[in-house]
Amino acid sequence: MSTTQPPEETLADVVMVDYGLGNLRSAMRGLERAGANVVVSDDPADFDDADGIVLPGVGAFSEGMENAGPFREPLAEAAADGTPIFGICLGMQMLLTSSEEADHAGEGEVEGLDFIPGRNVRFDEGQKVPHMGWNELNVQRDHPLVEGVDGEYAYFVHSYYADPDDEDAVVASTDYGVEFPAVVANEEGTVFGTQFHPEKSGETGLTILRNFVEFCAER
């Protein structure tokens, strides 16, 4: 049976944070295919009953952080409670402490959510940016999110990448001139993110979304 068929019953309640950016439709459909009941919400009160939280994201770091400002405290609380938090693309970059992107844009130091200590940095001059297209995932260590996807391809669109202070935060990496983190996670393994778009990464992406939903369901 094709894995793209929608499951018959939902496994977990997932809140997708709507902070006014980007196309949430694909990520929502992807999560639904993966067995989640998805609520798109801009109300932090919805985090309380969630089995998991998704931070989507397209756009610039400082704008993203500005829009995510009201969610900073509620997200920190959810993370402290051990609620799984999944950042996608810019949503992943926001999990770190800061980003060069804000510096480059002349916006000074813009604070990230700081769940994973480190900084987002730009690809070297010699590389075509954005890094756009399908590239290979090299799993570096065990994490439920990446089960079954080592060596598979995912769809990326980005010019900056995460550079966590602790090497162990890197769950999977990808080669684009440098070997950069494609999947990162905090020490507890409950806050994590993918630089690529799982909702645009075909079967591999759906596997990751399913892994996420199952991880949420087990907690």
């Binding site: 694909s26 459909r29 992807g30 769809y155 645009k200 990464s201 075909g202």
Partner: peptide
């Protein structure tokens, strides 16, 4: 179409 396609 977007609902059926999990690629760009």
């Amino acid at each position: 179409v977007a609902d059926e396609v999990f690629i760009p």
